[in-house]
Design a protein around this nucleic acid. Sequence first.
DNA 1: CGACTTTCTCCACTCTCAGGACAAAGACCT
DNA 2: AGGTCTTTGTCCTGAGAGTGGAGAAAGTCG
Lengths: 396, 396
Amino acid sequence: MRRMTARPANAHQARLLKLLRDGGPNSRAQLGDQVDLSRSKLAVEVDRLLETGLIVADGLAASRGGRRSHNIRLAPNLRFLGVDIGATSVDVAVTNAELEILGHLNQPMDVREGPVAVFEQVLSMAAKLRASGLAEGFDGAGIGVPGPVRFPEGVPVAPPIMPGWDGFPVREALSQELGCPVMVDNDVNLMAMGEMHAGVAHSVGDFLCVKIGTGIGCGIVAGGEVHRGVTGSAGDIGHIQAVPDGRPCACGNRGCLEAHFSGAALARDAMEAVEQGRSEELAARLAANGALTAVDVAAAAAAGDATALDLIREGGNRTGQVIAGLVSFFNPGLVVIGGGVTGLGHTLLAAIRTQVYRQSLPLATGNLPIVLGELGPTAGVIGAARLISDHLFSPA
Amino acid sequence: MRRMTARPANAHQARLLKLLRDGGPNSRAQLGDQVDLSRSKLAVEVDRLLETGLIVADGLAASRGGRRSHNIRLAPNLRFLGVDIGATSVDVAVTNAELEILGHLNQPMDVREGPVAVFEQVLSMAAKLRASGLAEGFDGAGIGVPGPVRFPEGVPVAPPIMPGWDGFPVREALSQELGCPVMVDNDVNLMAMGEMHAGVAHSVGDFLCVKIGTGIGCGIVAGGEVHRGVTGSAGDIGHIQAVPDGRPCACGNRGCLEAHFSGAALARDAMEAVEQGRSEELAARLAANGALTAVDVAAAAAAGDATALDLIREGGNRTGQVIAGLVSFFNPGLVVIGGGVTGLGHTLLAAIRTQVYRQSLPLATGNLPIVLGELGPTAGVIGAARLISDHLFSPA
DNA sequence: CGACTTTCTCCACTCTCAGGACAAAGACCT
DNA sequence: AGGTCTTTGTCCTGAGAGTGGAGAAAGTCG
């Protein structure tokens, strides 16, 4: 199950691997157009990469008016595992070296069951993907957890919503089980990396990626790099005060953004609305399902329920106010909204946009797109694969 | 007056120059300890730098148990000009290559008089410094302006408090007048660079530098680099909403931080307090000076005036609330408070600390110093000198 | 079939850089 | 005073990195 995975020997090789991964060039000549190396030097490095097996040359491309070029691509048997542990479910996917998803599984699961139970689940999902013939083994794995991570060590720290994970050696344990290198990061950062690799944020150097799910967090990308902060808690905006003397929050303060808008807050507000008889639509759904979640609110809103729409607008306004402050502060080139509640769609986006465009500086909002993520639940796993491939495609 | 200033020919030379500038090594051997080059290669590059005249070897150091080393230092006749244009005054200083201040002038001036008038003043101050024998000419100049800057071009954009400067080619104009390379940046960014070079933020990679003066802004340093945002307006936190439906602000919104706490807001609140008869101390100062400024509030507070202290605490609380959000978001390793109102000293700092430690995540505040800047009014000019020296000490 | 284009390979030459040998200059011990 | 050791700096050689030109390979097009 352990696979020998070569590493690039120098920065040139790393550059070439990443160019091939990120799609685009597929011949020596095209690579030469992008790397500013002489043809001779380029040929040497390509030959060395061919020797290591990290890339392969198979077949000839159609002529473009002269000699046909050799097709160069990353080894087709390379496999990365992307794992995205959410508060209430786990996503596991297999990708090839270009980070295209070959297989994807999703399983409901409560992260509070602790690392041992969750890992058992993750490993069985990975085994299932392997058994289906998508991979003989994994060359690397990336994993996202819903809380702050001490990045260099790959260890969660003081995660509020996942007791039992504090200090658990995620990287080491998973690496042992899978027999391959593993990198760990916050799930929101991975969503940002996913949207940067294959989504709306493609080739944007400075952007914010707000993930609204059970909790609420924000991936920060500055100069093309994820900013994690000194203790790995950067982007943890769920506990920024959104409403002075507002609702009490699990963290002990009042008025935190997360206490006013998140999957959990929305479900709670929907229950209150039913209790107060403000929405027959939601009441009907409660009666049918026995409980209410953000999905019910989204469905009610789609059916035109005024109360549900109000709840979403209200939450969007709160979130938009906080984001407006962050936009003034960070001056990003793009804001991406993602996570479980993107089902709330345009209503939510409109409320956020209104607040940001109204409250932030014109200079900061002048040319600022605020859009929904386009990868949905695959953003996290793609980001996870990208994380480990960035690591493996760097000089050892 | 134009001086020939050589530039390093490669990254090694750039590295050596910066090491020498930032103090520490002063011999070939000590340089060798820090740059991971063979002694031979190091000797070659040092010799080349000696040839260009950027560095000089003068005399021998005391022996440390063996052969005495040659003293190596940056050319002693290199001179940088640091200019810090504030809303109400201008600072101009001359530094040597190590960015030590050799002469410093400060002159009250209203930035709204426009770039032409201000430049006349700046040039006359620079001429005075030159005439006093501190410099024969300038090898480079850095200049900070109180508003957003399109950094690559060195041009202010849409500066709210400095009409008439929008689009004015500051870099080009000053470069023409002084006959040397010029770099332009926001004044707050330069304060951050100053504190990073020679102040409390020395060797801190991720920190925030909040400058409270006539307005309020925040320098953002991530990974040792200043984050300027896509339009150069990053750190403009004065118009983040601090009080819902609060005081009207010049920007058109209500409740902006700057409308509740800044030099201008403090003066206004002090006037109100006098009108309402809430402070005899402030009334006396108004009678004596004909007007009230933040300095009067500071003095009244130092004299124990309860109303003045309340104003400062109130402002500190507002500011602290905003900073608390930024700390949760950015997770810095240090927060520096600077600018004109640092005269408010410990009262202000205590209020800010209270809010941040109470409202931000424990993980983000666990080991987070919140301190006053230690360079005072020299931070800006040192940062300006640092900016241009970073530029000149990079390969051409 | 010849002229031209594109792709790739090979070769000679230059430059960078590391590391060892060694010289210079002093400290320290006997 | 003299020998030994340490520190600093210089010189030299050889291994690689890298460039650019010549030209071969393999195609298109008129």
